[in-house]
Design a protein around this nucleic acid. Structure first.
Lengths: 150, 150
DNA sequence: TCCTTTCGTTGGTGACTCCAACATTGGCGC
DNA sequence: GCGCCAATGTTGGAGTCACCAACGAAAGGA
């Protein structure tokens, strides 16, 4: 066959939103593969990370910290609790709330996911020299903080 | 209430894959809003753009150019054809293939989506000086081409 | 002529994001 | 204390995007 390698439309490749989106797809695939090896997914990592860093929290709090919808937090915590990685107990001081606690098994799972994610970063930023990695991270951080505040 | 503004775990904000993913979410929301105003979505834009830039193509070709699965191309082209934006005719030289053609109505739709998407780029990169925008685009392009080749 | 590949198509899955509604509970003004 | 609004957890849905397995039809090479 005379199949030349097909090119992507310049209308797409020229747009930061396209580059961002496609690169996010690759990153998500890498992360999903890593998480999948320990039977987890992205939502689980966010919640375990928030619990490890800030301690016990309500579900609403976790949602705000992790940029997750309340209803998605419910599902994720159901799954994490089922595996014994978190515990959900009613808050005596506010009977609307649940207190979500990280278990030692949950902390172990978090460390496993951490290792997987570290590999992802290396793979993702592989071709970039250290200085460019830093620049990229700075620019992305700048943009993200702008878009979730202003 | 004493609700301090909740912080995002450093485990997340420190990771390029997180920054990339969250920023892609914002970009996708902006683009979806814009596309939604003309009754379209991302897949439609990709295909219209490829047809405009490279002319008539088979569905498999469109899939490769736009990083789409063959089956998703089918659905998108069904919708575009239903709205009269593309035409699907059998290829006489290869009876497996369909030849997909951009109509003038499709070209008009593409221009509408272009305008919407241009606004998205401005909104997305809003807080960045021109030089930083260029740097970011360069780094993202560099990474993306690496990840879809090597 | 076989064998492999490609193509379009169908039908389904999963992850992430987001929304509307509901009952329960808390906080606040009056 | 009463009434109203806000917050919380929960259920049940939706849409977008990415992806996979299988199939029949057709093309291409050995």
């Amino acid at each position: 066959m005379v199949t030349v390698v097909e090119e992507t439309p310049a209308r797409l490749t020229a747009k930061p939103s396209w580059l961002l989106g496609q690169l996010a797809v690759h990153a998500h695939r890498l992360a999903s593969d890593g998480f999948g090896e320990v039977g987890a997914r992205g939502y689980h990592y966010r919640i375990l990370a928030a619990l490890d860093e800030f301690g016990v929290a309500s579900q609403a709090e976790l949602g705000r910290r992790c940029s997750m919808d309340r209803s998605d937090v419910v599902a994720a915590i159901n799954e994490l609790a089922e595996q014994g990685f978190v515990e959900r107990t009613p808050d005596p001081d506010d009977r609307r709330r649940n207190m979500v606690t990280l278990t030692t098994a949950g902390a172990r799972q978090l460390r496993r996911m951490d290792r997987a994610l570290d590999k992802v970063q290396d793979d993702l930023l592989g071709p970039l020299p250290a200085e460019d990695r830093q620049t990229l991270t700075r620019l992305l951080t700048q943009l993200l903080t702008h878009h979730q505040r202003g």
